[in-house]
């Protein structure tokens, strides 16, 4: 117990943070571009985005291995052009976390961008504001509560990712041993005390983030109700 390494905690936080950042940017941009527009194939595209939410993690892991493996299309390309190896590295863990948490961010962001009257954006446009200005001064602040909810959920999901991570990132102490993997291998090796410790830590992390989100949302709703 005393010799237990805390590297899984920091590694998990690092991977989840980077993944959440990527998912946030991609989710916000794609949701803003897609949610308010109607075009052929829209529902197919959105279904593809949500697919990782309903697929078993092993399928996601297999797909990622297929794409990012050393002989995979993207894996080969990344290796040849940038010398980046995805499989069995912490980058692989980030990619797995990105893929499984993206649907949560996309859904939240998509709902958030449809949750206000689109005429406020039109009004800003007729007042001469560029599309970029409209996005940062109008759309983004108005969608912010939903975007924040999506971010917290994505972070929690990224923190808990296991199946796809094990498949694409493997288990390399100090590099890809996130908390869920540490729990799995601690249980496998019969180190129950250590497993319990990690379980407590990850439950605390997940619980506190969702608790904070609920508290924040309620506070904002109350504030809004009182104002109006």
């Amino acid at each position: 117990m005393l010799t237990m390494s805390y590297s899984p905690l920091f590694l998990s936080l690092k991977i989840a943070a980077i993944a959440t950042l990527l998912v946030f940017v991609a989710g916000v941009i794609l949701a803003r571009v897609i949610s308010r527009n109607l075009f052929p194939g829209k529902s197919i595209l959105e279904s593809v985005f949500l697919l990782p939410l309903v697929l078993p993690p092993t399928v996601v892991g297999f797909g990622l291995l297929y794409l990012f493996g050393k002989n995979g299309i993207l894996g080969k390309w990344l290796m040849d052009w940038f010398g980046v190896q995805v499989v069995f590295s912490w980058i692989g863990a980030v990619i797995a976390a990105v893929v499984v948490s993206f649907p949560l961010m996309y859904q939240s962001a998509s709902a958030a961008f449809q949750n206000y009257d689109s005429n406020v954006e039109n009004a800003a446009l007729t007042m001469g504001a560029s599309r970029l200005k409209v996005f940062f001064t109008i759309s983004f602040p108005l969608a912010w509560p939903g975007l924040l909810a999506g971010t917290v959920l994505s972070f929690a999901r990224a923190l808990g990712e296991f199946g796809a991570t094990l498949m694409i990132a493997g288990y390399i102490p100090g590099q890809t041993d996130t908390i869920p993997l540490a729990i799995y291998f601690a249980v496998e090796a019969g180190r129950m005390e250590q497993a319990k410790m990690w379980v407590l830590i990850i439950v605390a992390l997940g619980f506190s983030s969702t608790l904070w989100l609920n508290w924040w949302t309620r506070r904002n709703v109350l504030l809004f109700n009182r104002k109006s």
């Binding site: 291995l65 493996g69 493997g170 390399i172």
Partner: peptide
């Protein structure tokens, strides 16, 4: 340089797929 697998069959898969 070691990649740890959760069972021996996974080691086999890793090598078969050319990922290690």
């Amino acid at each position: 340089q070691l990649v740890f697998a959760s069972d021996v069959r996974q080691v086999l898969t890793y090598v078969e797929s050319g990922n290690v």
